[in-house]
């Protein structure tokens, strides 16, 4: 019958609306369901997953030595030329010329954190750091030189 169906429609419609309102009302009154993490306040306790890929860093030990031989394997592996290795020739004590790393230029603004350079590195000289706060006011600051000044290659790394 028309009128019965009409009234049924009205009531089932109102009921479905009330069900939705009950759900939002539940969350309105239950503040323990809030899942917000207050970012700048939790900086000290924020732990990134250890596999998180934030940026490429060249590992230096306490003697300011790294393991990069300047072989350019990472440069070749990088799909978008994020890494540029500039090499120089050191004179070894024996008087031989030896290729060594001069500058490890890293374009963070190009990097897509794909991890291919890390896989390619034969000496595990580079790794992914867990930093993520990369915002700067000037684009040029994102181009970094990863080897520290006066750092040199660790003994025995070939």
């Amino acid at each position: 019958m028309f009128i019965v169906k009409y009234i049924k429609d009205v009531f089932s419609g109102i009921k479905s609306l009330l069900v939705g309102m009950r759900r939002t009302g539940y969350y309105f009154t239950h503040h323990k369901e809030i899942i917000t993490e207050q970012y700048p306040d939790n900086r000290d306790t924020l732990v990134m997953a250890d596999r998180f890929k934030g940026e490429v860093v060249l590992l230096h030990d306490e003697n300011n030595e790294h393991a990069c031989t300047g072989c350019t394997a990472c440069e070749l592996a990088c799909p978008n030329a994020t890494i540029k290795i500039v090499t120089k020739f050191d004179i070894t004590p024996e008087g031989k010329k030896k290729k060594a790393l001069d500058k490890f230029v890293y374009h963070l603004e190009l990097c897509t954190m794909c991890n291919l350079c890390i896989i390619a590195c034969p000496t595990d000289a580079i790794k992914m750091a867990q930093t993520f706060e990369h915002s700067v006011y000037d684009r040029a600051e994102l181009t970094k030189i990863l080897n520290k000044p006066d750092s040199k290659i660790r003994e025995g790394v070939e």
Partner: peptide
């Protein structure tokens, strides 16, 4: 090759894509 060829950019935040926290950091910057 960079949106700053078109309009001036105030803050750059690197990443592909940046973490949400990184974007928040950019907004705070």
């Amino acid at each position: 090759k960079g949106a700053d060829h078109i309009i001036p950019v105030d803050v750059y935040v690197a990443g592909c894509p940046p973490r949400p926290e990184a974007l928040l950091h950019a907004l705070i910057s």
